[in-house]
């Protein structure tokens, strides 16, 4: 991989995805050692700019940075910096003036990472931009899937829930399409974009119709705000039609099906506790892959600099 930034799965070729997953595998070996640290990124400085509440993605990046001996600083703010009187660009320029090599950014507005990438010399990693992309999540999910099935091609994956507002869904669908999996989406019509057919997916509105013969059920979080935006009549009704209950799972899905969820899960809403905690669930495996994939990306984006330094 020879690129300055990692902004979306959309921009990655299949070969680049393969490379990230391959390096992630060797990173995972570091994570399995008794002393979990490598000197790979010694002298590399990473700034984590999180303009939206996030614990797991921020922790995952921070851990990945520490495991590879990078120096990191965090700037965490619940909203865009412009509301505090400084523009995003000024904030980022200040950070870059500190000779930061990599900026990891989480932002509620699509394109914020692209905006920085275009204007800064530092590498930019998109840690989630609005409802646009969340490439590191999708890559770690691809890693989890490959570990479980030893392949991605031809797997049947159903993504269930709020597709419209999900950056995870967008990135994952594109990634799965690129790797040759068959993708299905399911949810209430108000939460599936009217132009969904730009992706290579099969759309179903009925959960019980989509459950049979899938290899993976990927359940998305549903936000309570959707009710106020008149996208859902009530959570009660959402649960009635779209919650993945143990009963539904056993009745309609394959007995070898795997359940995934990007977290954090709303127990009892999109997924029943018993399902989340069942032997079908890979939800915690996703977390470990997350750290390995982020280590891989941090390494691949700074490889050139590291090589130059050692020559």
């Amino acid at each position: 991989m020879n690129r300055k930034d990692l902004l979306g799965i959309e921009d990655l070729s299949k070969e680049e995805i393969e490379e990230i997953l391959k390096v992630a595998k060797s990173m995972e070996e570091i994570l399995e050692r008794p002393i979990k640290i490598a000197p790979t990124l010694r002298g590399i400085t990473v700034a984590n700019l999180f303009f939206e509440p996030s614990t797991r993605t921020l922790n995952s990046f921070t851990l990945a940075e520490k495991r590879l001996s990078a120096d990191s600083i965090n700037l965490v703010s619940s909203s865009s910096s412009v509301l505090k009187g400084e523009t995003l660009l000024d904030t980022a320029k200040n950070i870059q003036a500190m000779e930061v090599d990599i900026i990891v950014i989480r932002h509620s507005i699509p394109g914020a990472p692209h905006f920085l990438a275009e204007r800064l010399d530092a590498s930019v990693i998109n840690a989630g931009d609005g409802a646009h992309e969340h490439p590191t999540q999708a890559l770690s999910d691809l890693m989890t899937i490959r570990k479980k099935f030893s392949k991605i091609k031809d797997l049947k994956v159903a993504i269930v829930g709020d597709i419209e507002h999900s950056r995870v869904a967008r990135s994952l669908i594109i990634g799965l399409n690129k790797m040759g999996a068959k993708v299905f989406v399911c949810g209430p019509p108000t939460l599936i974009p009217k132009w969904m057919d730009i992706f290579d997916v099969t759309i179903k509105y009925n959960l019980e119709e989509i459950l049979p013969d899938k290899d993976i059920l990927y359940i998305l979080r549903v936000q309570k705000e959707r009710q106020e935006e008149s996208l859902l009549p009530s959570m009660r009704e959402y649960i009635k039609y779209y919650s993945l209950t143990y009963e539904r799972l056993r009745k309609f899905a394959s007995s070898k099906v795997i359940i995934m969820h990007p977290g954090p899960i709303n127990r009892g809403i999109e997924i029943e506790s018993r399902v989340a905690d069942s032997e079908y669930s890979l939800i915690l495996d996703q977390v470990i892959s997350g750290v390995a994939v982020r280590m891989s990306i941090l390494y691949l984006l700074s490889r050139k600099k590291i090589d130059e330094n050692s020559n």
């Binding site: 394109g111 974009p193 132009w195």
Partner: peptide
């Protein structure tokens, strides 16, 4: 515009 591009970009 609501359409292909807004769906792609999540705007």
């Amino acid at each position: 515009n609501e359409g292909i591009i807004s769906t792609k970009l999540g705007l």
